[in-house]
Computed example of a mutant assay.
Amino acid sequence: MTMAEQTKLEAPKTAETEDELAGSEAPLLDHLIELRKRLIRSLLVILGLLIVCFFFAGPIFDVLVQPYRNAIYPQPVELIYTAPQEFFFTQLSLALFGAVFIGFPYLATEVYGFVAPGLYKKERRAFIPYLIATPIFFILGACMVYFAVLPLAMHFFHAMETPEIKLLAKVSEYLGLAMTLIIAFGICFQLPVILTLLAQIDLVSSASLKKGRKYAIVGILIFAAFITPPDPISQIGLSLPMYLLYELSIWSVTLIERRRAKTLAAEGTSDDGTAAS
């Protein structure tokens, strides 16, 4: 075979390969464009909420300080700042926290809108309950911090005072602690949602979750020690709910497996009946 004939035979293959590559790159480019649009919209929403929340930084501050007041009542809360610009940047942090907290349902909706086109109609309907459960579990985690963990932690810290040594907390450090715990607990409370979703696509099972329980306990303790302040109240306050949520996830995954088994059994019975008739 001459070089010219070999070139003629290889030319159509090269053209077909280029067409396939172009066809595979086009959907990827469309997904990237869609992702960029959703990211821009999300950033604009957060930016708009940040501007609005900046004017309500005072009420947000009062809300976040209330657990501190409840912890040391009837003593007054005394917070200080040691740099001229510190309180201004603290207000910006409060505004950003308020924007993320209020905008969290919208962010979850944008994530769903990006994922939904790749799902079947039945899968979209199955995804909606998780979309609803996500902000609910986030708020439950925030309430856990607000009404239990943060008051107990501040009471613990104030109990260490002596007549000569008093606690005068910096406003930025207290609010940073409060906001970090609220966001951390809100995210950690998504554990049942994430594990149940993974079970829906057969990436985890109740048997594997039960077998990995001891590793999960160690992982939860390490994660709690890393993300919370170095005090036992905060660490136990995060570790215990996370372990309970892990057990809740096992129960939820078990229900999904039972429902799936019933559906398969019903389909099998239907097929047998059709075949018999």
Rank of each mutant, 00 (worst) to 15 (best):
S249R: 08
L39I: 15
Q190M: 03
R124M: 13
A225F: 11
S172T: 11
A265S: 14
A83F: 10
H31D: 01
M3N: 09
T2A: 03
Q75Y: 14
V171A: 15
E123K: 09
G237N: 08
Q190S: 00
G48N: 08
K122I: 03
Y215R: 08
A153S: 15
R36D: 02
K121Y: 15
L240P: 00
Q66Y: 10
H155F: 15
E267K: 15
K8E: 04
I136T: 13
T134P: 01
I40T: 03
C53Y: 03
F185R: 05
L64H: 04
V100T: 05
T82K: 04
L150H: 03
T2D: 14
K210M: 09
P232C: 12
P74A: 09
V65W: 07
L28F: 10
L240T: 10
Y243F: 15
L140G: 08
G48H: 09
H31Y: 05
R41W: 12
P27I: 02
R124N: 07
T274M: 05
A224Y: 09
D271V: 07
A15Y: 00
M1Q: 01
P163I: 11
G113E: 07
F101T: 15
L209W: 03
K8D: 06
V77A: 12
E18P: 00
Y106Q: 09
E16H: 00
M1S: 02
E5I: 02
F54N: 00
I182P: 01
G176W: 06
E78A: 06
L96M: 13
V218L: 13
M179N: 03
S208T: 13
E161A: 11
D202M: 01
L64D: 05
L32Y: 00
I256F: 07
S252H: 03
R213F: 12
L167E: 12
I217C: 01
R124S: 06
L244Q: 08
I187Q: 07
L197H: 03
T274N: 14
G219S: 04
G98W: 08
G176H: 13
L49C: 04
K8P: 02
D19K: 10
K166G: 11
N70H: 09
